[in-house]
Design a binder for these strands. Structure first.
Lengths: 228, 228
DNA sequence: CGCTTCCTTACCGAACCCGAACACGTACCG
DNA sequence: CGGTACGTGTTCGGGTTCGGTAAGGAAGCG
């Protein structure tokens, strides 16, 4: 089931070589990203402004307007959307120029599409930043994002990193029901790939560790939610 | 990155190449700094005296008056505002001269603007911080920022400079979990791409020196924290 | 020239994640 | 009321990732 609505957001790809562009689009789409393709710098810049993608993948050598220039203009306009450059060769000059212009990462051609996807994910994760914030309490459970600690009925509970992220995600919006796909995307960074029981297993683990204080409710046929 | 809303003070940037100057201004402004731009050494020196910035970013190769000279004159006048040099090349002469003149850091061109911002922040943190004021104790470990000494269970421990800074950074906010990236940025001043084990090695070193008294906790998949 | 400090690399053990399989409970339907 | 199907809870082992550790080399310093 290929999702119609991109659960992970839109990525703008500006690349003039159709073969490469298709490849990139294929892999990003397979990973759950929406993809918008442009062939030259001008159109790319316009699309970036119009569509507000969550990230941009820019070839450096582009007709009309080099990718570096697209990036620079975005930055000048106060647009800090993460940018990943595609450079023709592992050329020190290109690399450096890219970073000077405020790119978040770069990939040299020829490249592995998997690597590109991984970098897009990494960049997005970084842009999301360390999940800071004040401690939050739901029922008898208190969660501190800074300290990454959890207490259930006043007793400290030791959660693994994934367990903590899962609980934090649920507690960020108490009462809101999250589907398994949403949780996979938000916590694991995966595209919605149904058929896995991973979320269930981790929910069970968190519930076990929280004991009686657990306030994760199952919504049959839908997903999970923290009590409001 | 912590998102600090309040203005973080004015940074003076003296750089004759408009492209680079704009870039630096963009990034500093984005990070919450006020920015004042000058194009040559004379004007830069005057601006520094007039505006009293919290930090200066000086290109070394400047019209009228080299950046090194600007720095030297400031120091002569008793102005110890933190200075970061921009050097055209990783030139040994420039480096030494710069630091001799009382610069706090330097960045070689071409550079990543993110790294420059990170260094400005690091320099300010350092400048703000001979204080720390009172010694701080966490568990059996006591750290004195003024004397740069550490005792574990009452026994003096000799730490190297980097080790001390790392421990101080962690102890500044006990309980708070710092990612490796945050530590690299805060202690080393890198706008680091991850992928290095530097932090781990230094943590191990500190732990070894603190012995049983060590209270640095590993948060798997995240980073490190000092016990609360 | 030797010493210290710092950073990198490589290896290893341990913790953790994930998928599969099975058990259980609930909703639906005859 | 019993049966069946589907969704969820739970357990467990393999494979992978992550962090601790040791060793080596470069750079600064006396």
């Amino acid at each position: 089931m290929t999702a119609d609505a991109p659960p992970r957001g839109l990525v703008l790809v500006v690349e003039d070589e159709p073969a490469i562009a298709d490849l990139v689009r294929l892999y990003l789409a397979r990973d759950g990203f929406g993809v918008h393709l442009e062939r030259d710098g001008e159109a790319g810049l316009a699309a970036a402004r119009r569509l507000r993608p969550v990230a941009c993948v820019l070839d450096i050598a582009l007709p009309h307007l080099p990718g570096t220039e697209v990036c620079r203009r975005l930055r000048e306009a106060g647009d800090w959307t993460p940018v990943i450059f595609l450079t023709a060769r592992d050329d020190e000059v290109d690399r450096v120029v890219g970073l000077e212009l405020g790119a978040d990462d770069y990939v040299t051609k020829p490249f592995s599409p998997r690597e590109l996807v991984a970098r897009v994910r990494a960049v997005l994760r970084r842009a999301a930043g360390p999940p800071g914030g004040r401690p939050r309490t739901v029922g008898a459970v208190t969660l501190d994002p800074d300290r990454r600690t959890v207490t259930a009925a006043g007793v400290p509970v030791q959660l693994t990193s994934t367990e903590f992220d899962l609980l934090a995600h649920l507690m960020a919006r108490p009462g809101r029901v999250f589907t398994r796909e949403e949780l996979l995307a938000g916590v694991w960074g995966y595209a919605a790939h149904a058929g896995t029981r991973t979320v269930d297993v981790h929910v069970a683990q968190v519930r076990a560790k929280l004991g009686e204080a657990s306030m994760i409710r199952t919504h049959r046929g839908v997903g999970y939610a923290a009590d409001a």
